[in-house]
Nucleic acid binder design. Structure first.
Lengths: 164, 164
DNA sequence: TTCCTGACTTTCTTGAGGAAAGTTGCCTGG
DNA sequence: CCAGGCAACTTTCCTCAAGAAAGTCAGGAA
């Protein structure tokens, strides 16, 4: 439904999933939100998307209930931010799977390094997508950090917002 | 590199992965190949892609070494078929992750049903993406069947071709 | 020789992507 | 009280990809 063909009525779940996820920006936007970068300009600047496209994608993601748009007040101004719903937070295994695949099968560019996914609950690095390879627990955004040596950061992800 | 922006030099593996996988057709084509539908016209007819786009995508997938194009003779004619490389076969966890997500978070259309992924090695259905939730083995295409009740099929996937 | 088929390539129109500039409403400083 | 910023979009314009349909080409088959 979002871009070209509408596959939301397809019987095969892979196709129904790709109806939403088969766009390169969707996953990047969701990744930023799960990293706590939730404002329009933060997302735009960190992934390098044009205003027009970001605006369209955010509307789509709210329609599809992967994000929820909420107002909040900071420094005496009203801002908007986009927070993940349960459906949005559940994209984490797909991101892990993509990341595992890319580390194995794409060429690591100059200055790159291995990105470790740390399951903070048990402290170990996990090498599988949806359950921790060390302790077997389901991986949820709030329990996981992404360690990016090339940026010298280790960021704990943020999970789904509680439904208001 | 494939469509619009080139993200193949990005330091983040998620972005490098999406450089190739962030297109709805790529995953569908690879799914057909892993199901043993390897010829141009088989792929076209089963996923409903236009000739021009399929041709471009197949060239891309061969360039990126997810597929290999091979000649074979059948019924006294020479045909071409596209077979998965190791990198192509390793997309399986991503497909599983997409399918698990879609079954949980998209509306099941009229006439649909749950698609079970069966790990034939142990005989159980697996509910995780990359290792069998029952026995813990790594899931490889040759050991997995997709059971689609709405088509009354249970197809064993085909793995990577041996490098020639 | 002509027909058919597999595997594309070409043509054409519509619509999405990307860059840049314009818009709107809230808020602050002078 | 007015000018200026800023956040969050929307508009405009140009180029290029998607999708539909028709054309191409080579190897058998009738």
């Amino acid at each position: 439904m979002p871009l070209r063909s509408d596959w939301s009525e397809d019987l095969c779940p892979v196709r129904r999933g790709l109806d939403v996820l088969g766009d390169p920006w969707i996953m990047l936007i969701m990744r930023e939100v799960l990293h706590g970068r939730c404002r329009f300009d933060e997302i735009r600047d960190s992934i390098g998307i044009s205003d027009a496209v970001l605006s369209r994608r955010l509307r789509l993601l709210v329609d599809e209930e992967l994000l929820r748009k909420v107002e909040y007040r900071a420094d005496r101004r009203t801002h908007f931010e986009y927070v993940a719903t349960d459906a949005g937070a559940d994209l984490l295994p797909i991101m892990h799977a993509v990341s595992i695949w890319a580390e194995k099968h794409t060429r690591m560019p100059e200055g790159g390094a291995h990105m470790a996914v740390i399951h903070e609950t048990c402290g170990a690095e996990t090498t599988t997508a949806d359950v921790c390879s060390e302790c077997g627990d389901v991986l949820r955004p709030g329990d996981v950090s992404w360690d990016k040596p090339w940026k010298a950061t280790r960021e704990r992800l943020v999970g789904a917002a509680q439904p208001s």
